[in-house]
Amino acid sequence: MTGPVLSIRDLSVEIPTRAGVVKPVDGVSYDIGRGEILGVVGESGAGKSMAGNAVIGLLNPPAHISAGEIWLEGARIDPLQGEAMRRLRGKEIGMVFQDPLTSLNPLLKIGDQLTETILTHLPVSREEAERRAIAALDEVGIPGAAQRIDSYPHEFSGGMRQRVVIALALCAEPSLIIADEPTTALDVSVQAQIIALLRRLCRDRGTAVMLITHDMGVIAEAADRVAVMYAGRLAELGPVREVLTRPQHPYTDGLMASTPLASQARNRLHQIPGSMPRLTDLPDGCAFHPRCPLVQAQCRQNPHPNIGKGRAACWFPLIERAAE
């Protein structure tokens, strides 16, 4: 198969609340190809995790998918319910969350958790499953994997636990891994280890990865392409180097300029005025216009822009301005 592993088309998520219906995800489309890491970046409330949860069918009611389609390996998965979704979740989509403890059962040995997962999803014997469990732990870099399968989650350090979670996500050989802030809770030195691990696995196995994070540095180092989200919508989507060095959306531009650099001291940080609007009262027109330094009358009047021929969902992408 040559198509993308995951394809999201015009996905919208709605939550009915007292104050009316809010849309934490609004008309989002992106693809992830084989062996590709797509970084989904945005500030809190941008809807980046909500989009990931929608893919794996883990939206907390009353949140629900209100429009759009999700395709995995050429099959539509958004209408799946209950058992079918659960099967898909372990088999085709692996998950890595911020806190490794939420993904591991504290009462079971990690070897048993891995073997169970493999047996549930793959047609192999118990011996084979155990062999694969050890191989998976070995692959994620847990020293002495054959001995450690008898350990409980609390016997591992934070970084090692996250490796176990990655092994657990990988062991059923899924085609897609959704990693939601996988390194946020970890120390800098361990963070680098996990990023290197994700990249290696992705390259070696051809697994597609959706890497959700707020950390531009992690995106820059790990992702192939990046989707920048703002107020539930895509702001910019494109190859990571181009988006980060030559942003076309004023928001991406502001975000990059306000990130302090380790390589040089800046006298004063650039700042985007204001903060992200609450979903309950989004401004008319482009959601970014109240904070945009380059706002024009059209940005307030026209509906929210979509990504057109450029990379950015902006009426006046920076590339055109430069050309003028």
């Binding site: 350090s157 120390d187 680098a192 180092e221 790990a222 990571v240 980060l244 990130t259 650099l261």
Partner: peptide, 20 residues
């Protein structure tokens, strides 16, 4: 060396060994 950099595209860091 280990801290991620926003200009470190595809940087192959030699990740540090061990943990605290």
């Amino acid at each position: 060396n280990a801290a991620p950099r926003i200009d470190g595209f595809g940087r192959e860091v030699d990740p540090p060994q061990g943990e605290i």
